[in-house]
Amino acid sequence: MPSLYEFANPVRFERWARPAIPWLVGATTLLLVAGLYYALFNSPADYQQGDSVRIMYVHVPAAWMALFCYSLIAVSSAVGFIWKHPLADVAAKETAPIGAAFTFLALFTGSIWGKPMWGAWWAWDARLTSVLILFFLYLGYMAIWRTFEDKTRAARLAAILAMVGFVNIPIIKFSVDWWNSLHQPASVFRAGGPTIHSSMLPPLFLMAGAYMTFFAAALLQSMRNELMARRLARIDSGEKKTAASLVES
């Protein structure tokens, strides 16, 4: 009975997700305050880049989150596709806009960081270009969810696309690196970013932690919203139509 399965799990989800959200929000605030303090005041300026290196603390964790979120979408999609777990589909769907926002943040801050380095807002740096393509992958994935009204079908198709996209990420990444090495000299980000001094690590990890807890809180809240909206839709459609069955005539 798929319907029982569908009801039981979201109920249990609601029971632990709701109290978890305030804790996650609190953790995000603490980590963010600490991270920003270290990033802005308590870490050295780069000897070449000066204070603009501090953009890294916002940029690099955002790029990490961009990839992490897409991976999570792919894994949730596989779980939803293979085991038909309804929560997995919802998790994949609701991760996408948050992941896309992190991706956008990475692109935006990367561009700001690039301006003093390259003298241009965009210099077709290999890493940034890969992140841009990842952003397009997010757009395609979200477009599927937006265009199909039938949520079960949308879930299946979006899952297929997410898995195909995930398999292609290494290939795309490789092709962009290849393209960049043919056309461009090495740039700021290429050699693993500017050499990381150990004093740069605490703010980096604090910020990454803040992003992570923020992501978890945002994901749980959007999943709750989505589950609630679906329950309403189900009640609504149940009132409109009763299924037909056969009678002799």
Binding site: I133, L134, F136, L137, L139, G140, A143, I144, T147, F148, R153, L157, I160, L161, V164, G165, N168, I171, I172, F174, S175, V176, W178, W179, L182
Partner: peptide, 29 residues
């Protein structure tokens, strides 16, 4: 993927463009 949609050209383009990138890079390269 988009077979069930009446006007899908745009959606297909959005989906397919990032997946086409390696072929474009190696081909034009």
């Amino acid at each position: 993927l988009a077979v069930a949609l009446p006007r899908a050209s745009l959606l297909i383009s959005i989906i397919v463009s990032p997946l086409y990138i390696p072929i474009l890079i190696f081909g034009a390269g």
